[in-house]
Every structure is written in structure tokens, then in C-alpha cells.
Simulated scan of single mutants.
Amino acid sequence: MTTRQPLRIAILGTHSTGKTTLLKRIEMELRAEGVTVARTGRLGKRAAAAGLPKMHHHTADSTEWIITQGIADEIAATVQGAEVVLIDRAAHDAIAYFHAALAYRGEVPPRLERERLLTLASTQLPKYDLLFATTLDESMPVDTGHEYDARFRRLVDQHVQLLLDQDDIAHQRVTSDPDSQAHAIDTAIQLCLKEALV
């Protein structure tokens, strides 16, 4: 590729909706085409390992850590020469989880804190060349490796969609339907290969 900055493809959505699997499939296809790919991720687990709360225990601090660590991971991937960076959890994903956690606990965040975190997440939007948003299908089996709470999972899905709609954020929705996933993969591959020829 001849672009100075790598292409950035990001994803967000509630847990166990196929985000990581989708990015792995995109990565595999791109590597088969000779494209250098880096994939960020595991931010929730890394936050927990650092002693920060996760899932419905999220706080402003854990949200800020996840956003800023995600930014740092993207920068590191760029410095290492990746042509495409696959971002497993776009910055707004952390905001959705935070808002869902507050709703789950019946809490209201201070307005300035909420606005500050949303502003931080919003600074990342111009960097995404493509943003996918997975949608919840409760008929699909869940990853039992997650701390699973059906109500919290629904709240995250609602807050993801709310953020995307309220801020009119350009994105492509991805459902559990195989055709929807195949279309997302094809969209990502075609974008990357097109840029490689520029």
C-alpha cells in the first residue's frame, strides 16, 4: 500500500456477537492477499488484569483506560508498519459499556464526566476508514468465557445503537446472518485492496 497511514477498520457491539471472529476472518483474507495486518483487542481482560472493573461494574476510570489503551495499541501497530489495523472495540464501544453499566446499576454519571469521555471517544472517529457494528441476536449461543448477564448484554446493545444513531456515526451493521457477515468481510477486503492499488 502506498498510503502513509494504515487503513483502520474498527468494530463495536455487545459481547458474544461475533466481533473478534469477524476481524479474524478479515485478517486471514488480507494476509492471504499479502497485506500486513495488525489487530488490537483484549482490552476488557487487560483492564481487569490491571485491577480495573469490567462488564456491569465499569467506571469512568476503566472506560478512560480502555479508550486510551486502544489508542496506544493503534499507534504501536502503525509504528510497526501495519498496512491495515483491525480495531477490536472502537472507542465508542467503551462508552456504550459504561452507559450500560450505569443503567444496569441505576446510576447517572456526572454530566461533565459523561461529556468528557464521549469527546475523547469521538476524537477517534475520523481515523476509522470503516466501522462495523454488530447487532444482538439472543437466539445465538453465547461465549461462556464471558461474565454473562442477559440484561446487561441487551443494555450494551441498546447503548451501542443509541450512540451510533444519536451522533449519526457512519457504520455498517452486521447481524448474525452469514450473508451479512460475508458482506462485511467483502466490504473490508475490497476497501483494503482498492487502497493497495492507489
Rank of each mutant, 00 (worst) to 15 (best):
E27L: 02
E27W: 02
E29R: 15
L30F: 08
R31F: 01
R31M: 07
A32I: 02
A32Q: 12
A32S: 12
G34F: 10
V35C: 15
T36Q: 14
V37L: 11
A38W: 09
A38Q: 09
A38I: 03
T40Y: 04
G41I: 05
R42F: 00
R42V: 03
R42H: 08
R42P: 00
G44W: 01
G44C: 08
G44E: 10
K45Q: 13
R46P: 04
A47F: 02
A47N: 01
A47V: 04
A48F: 01
A49H: 14
A49D: 15
L52M: 02
P53S: 03
P53F: 03
K54T: 14
H56Q: 11
H57D: 14
H58T: 03
A60F: 09
A60L: 08
S62D: 02
T63K: 04
E64D: 14
I66R: 14
I67D: 06
T68Q: 13
Q69C: 03
Q69H: 12
G70W: 11
G70C: 10
I71L: 14
A72C: 02
D73R: 05
E74Y: 04
I75W: 09
I75A: 11
I75S: 07
A76V: 01
T78S: 06
T78P: 00
Q80T: 15
G81L: 13
G81K: 11
A82L: 09
A82G: 12
A82S: 15
E83G: 15
E83R: 15
D88S: 03
R89A: 03
R89T: 12
R89N: 05
D93S: 12
A94D: 09
A96I: 10
A96Q: 07
F98T: 01
A101Y: 00
A101C: 02
L102R: 14
R105V: 11
R105G: 13
R105E: 13
R111W: 07
L112M: 10
E113Q: 15
R114I: 00
E115V: 13
R116H: 14
L118H: 06
L118A: 05
T119C: 11
L120C: 06
A121R: 07
P126A: 10
P126K: 09
Y128Q: 03
Y128N: 04
D129W: 07
D129M: 08
L130G: 08
L130S: 09
F132P: 09
F132D: 08
A133K: 11
T135Y: 06
L136C: 00
L136A: 01
S139Q: 08
D143Y: 02
T144N: 03
T144H: 05
T144K: 03
G145R: 04
H146C: 06
H146V: 06
H146Y: 13
Y148L: 13
D149M: 09
D149P: 06
